[in-house]
């Protein structure tokens, strides 16, 4: 029997289970897009069929990092940019967990960019939500990796001389197997995308546009928005890398001009997840490694039996 009976438990799940009794009310600014992520995530969980006890939410630092305080589950509020390596190791240790990582655009595309690239490349079966508000909010409005060129802030007084990061293109080039962009002002689409992301067996990256009414008034509320799947203007195959790449490029460029395109941009349902790849080459056991520590009858290998002979 599993030592983790919450995993795979079949029962009715109410979205309110994901509201923590300790801090039911987030302290984000009124009108903050982060509320939209929280709401969409709470709505998505019952549809995915995962309970708080079998879900691990790993967050980074920033306003977005507080998500783990306002969402009831096993939570790990880590350090700036490092949610992904913690999340993916938890998944390797116990693949039955529903593992979600979340952070801001500075967290994921800036300081944690290296981890983003490699986690996508390895295709870990986790969901990564990036709260993209194109600004550093918690530290009071500095230019972030996704701030548009020319963005003025106290740390970029003459306007940023840099082109912003292209998060969707970066994700595709790195190897993510599910890539979408949604916006806080579009809760229905956001929920659907989060459901798909969690159900996807591989690295699912959701670039979540979250308006910052306090420090990034220029960006507005990301309205009006267009769902690329519903628009007649666009016709591309989300399973085709080249078409997806073109569409992503177009989407990123248009955002800088104030036009908000959202929807699914890439989906490769065929690619095995990292755990599957590792198991296929004999580098990861079928049974979750974590289970063994709770199994009193488990037989533990000894170096005395396996390794010492080669030294004699």
């Amino acid at each position: 029997m599993s030592a983790f009976t919450a995993i795979g438990e079949e029962r009715e799940i109410d979205r309110e289970e994901f509201t923590p009794g300790v801090e039911p009310q987030p302290t984000w600014c009124p009108g903050c897009g982060d509320f939209g992520v929280l709401k969409a995530l709470k709505q998505a969980m019952p549809e995915v069929g995962r309970t708080p006890d079998e879900t691990m939410l790993v967050t980074g630092i920033g306003c977005s990092g507080k998500l783990s305080s306002y969402f009831e589950s096993y939570g790990y509020h880590s350090i700036h940019g490092r949610s992904l390596p913690i999340a993916r190791a938890a998944k390797l240790a116990n693949p039955g967990l529903e593992v979600i990582a979340a952070g801001g655009d500075g967290d994921g595309y800036g300081i944690g960019g290296n981890h983003f690239m490699h986690t996508a490349r390895e295709n870990h079966d986790i969901t990564y939500i990036v709260f993209n508000n194109e600004i550093f909010g918690l530290t009071k409005g500095q230019t972030s990796p996704t701030s548009p060129k020319g963005h003025k802030s106290k740390t970029q007084p003459h306007g940023s001389a840099k082109d912003p990061v292209r998060p969707l293109s970066l994700s595709l080039a790195s190897g993510a197997s599910y890539i979408a962009r949604t916006a806080a002002v579009n809760p229905q689409q956001a929920k659907e995308i989060l459901v798909e992301a969690m159900e996807h067996d591989g690295f699912a990256h959701v670039d979540f546009l979250t308006q910052c009414p306090t420090w990034n008034k220029d960006a507005g509320e990301y309205v009006p928005y267009t769902d690329v799947q519903e628009s007649d203007e666009f016709d591309f195959d989300i399973t085709d890398r080249r078409e997806a790449a073109d569409m992503m490029y177009e989407t990123e460029s248009r955002l800088w001009e104030g036009e908000v395109l959202t929807g699914r941009f890439y989906h490769d349902a065929e690619r095995p997840s990292y755990s599957e790849e590792k198991q296929a080459i004999g580098e990861m056991p079928e049974e979750p490694v974590a289970e063994r520590y709770f199994d009193e009858d488990a037989e533990w290998e000894r170096t005395a039996d396996e390794l010492i002979d080669r030294h004699t």
């Binding site: 790990y76 490092r82 190791a89 290296n114």
Partner: peptide, 19 residues
Amino acid sequence: VEDEIAAAALAIGASHAGV
């Protein structure tokens, strides 16, 4: 993994999850 920040963070993640 990609660097030593990740290396230490992964070990922490695995330990947190019971290994």
